[in-house]
């Protein structure tokens, strides 16, 4: 099954389930049942199942189904959870202090999840379209290697040409660029302007160099391109990871608040 077909199937299933939930809730409410308990326990079950995905990732060795299947179920359940949440709060803004805190926790988790889903669908295509697929944790090593290679080339040019033109330029303009991740937001918005600006400067420098220096500068130009692609990978992969800093901690807070909410609701029923 193709990715598009799978996405279509999941989308259809999510819509169907949401309609079933809405209809069932309306019928239960019409039959004088306390529909708040129905939607509440449904939401609790969905949230617990969603949280189990995090545990599943911690025990990959257990035969609990593929992570991809779990992710599909997580996305489907999350979408359904948003619908059940809306039904549970009666499509309005909660009024109590605790209820508002609980709703905020849910919305942060759900919102970050939706953002994460979007990023996980959008960014990988961009990452594949530019540069090599790098391991995020290895990017500092690669950046260091590029730096060392560039500095070796600068030393070579200085020694052979007996001039400090490239060394000066490197010291003034390129050292900071090679030393740390740069142009984060430019990479996020897919802007190539910083990269073109450096390459243009190097082209301007070309006419002041002799043949050997031009060869070295050409190799440094290649390293600039490699460093910029590495920064691109770093920026996009950072975004792919940072959204979980809202999603995962707030999931725990949500579970704790839910526990109190369930006890309070029954104690005052």
């Amino acid at each position: 099954m193709t990715f598009a077909a799978r996405r279509l199937r999941i989308g259809f299933a999510a819509i169907l389930l949401a309609l079933v939930v809405l209809f069932g809730h309306a019928v239960y409410a019409a039959t004088l049942g306390d529909a708040r308990f129905l939607s509440g326990y449904m939401l609790l079950a969905l949230v617990v199942f969603l949280a189990l995905y995090g545990l599943r990732r911690r025990v990959p060795f257990l035969p609990l189904g593929s992570s991809a299947r779990w992710l599909q179920a997580h996305i489907l359940t999350g979408g359904l959870g948003v619908v059940v949440f809306a039904v549970h709060v009666d499509w309005t803004v909660p009024r109590g202090v605790f209820e508002i805190a609980l709703a905020i926790a849910f919305l942060v988790v759900a919102g970050s999840g939706v953002i994460g889903l979007f990023l996980s669908r959008y960014l990988p295509a961009r990452l594949s379209s530019r540069g090599e697929d790098l391991l995020f944790d290895r990017i500092p090593v690669i950046r260091r290697e590029i730096l060392e290679r560039a500095e070796a080339l600068v030393m070579e040019a200085t020694t052979k040409a007996q001039t400090s033109t490239i060394a000066d330029y490197y010291s003034d303009r390129l050292r900071a660029f090679f030393d740390r991740p740069c142009n984060f937001w430019s990479h996020i918005v897919e802007s190539g302007r910083p990269r073109r600006r450096i390459l243009a400067e190097m082209t301007d420098l070309d006419r002041y160099l002799d043949r050997e220096e031009r060869r070295v500068l050409g190799e440094i130009r290649g390293l600039v391109v490699a460093k910029d692609d590495t920064d691109y990978q770093h920026a996009l992969q950072s975004v792919l990871r940072y959204w979980t800093f809202a999603h995962v901690p707030m999931t725990n807070a949500l579970l704790l608040l839910l526990l109190v909410h369930v006890v309070a609701v029954h104690a005052f029923a």
Partner: peptide, 19 residues
Amino acid sequence: SRSPSGGKDPLGIDPYDFV
């Protein structure tokens, strides 16, 4: 995988050969 980026540098240097 060590596939290079979308294209080589105009000077013909593969920026990834050192790793």
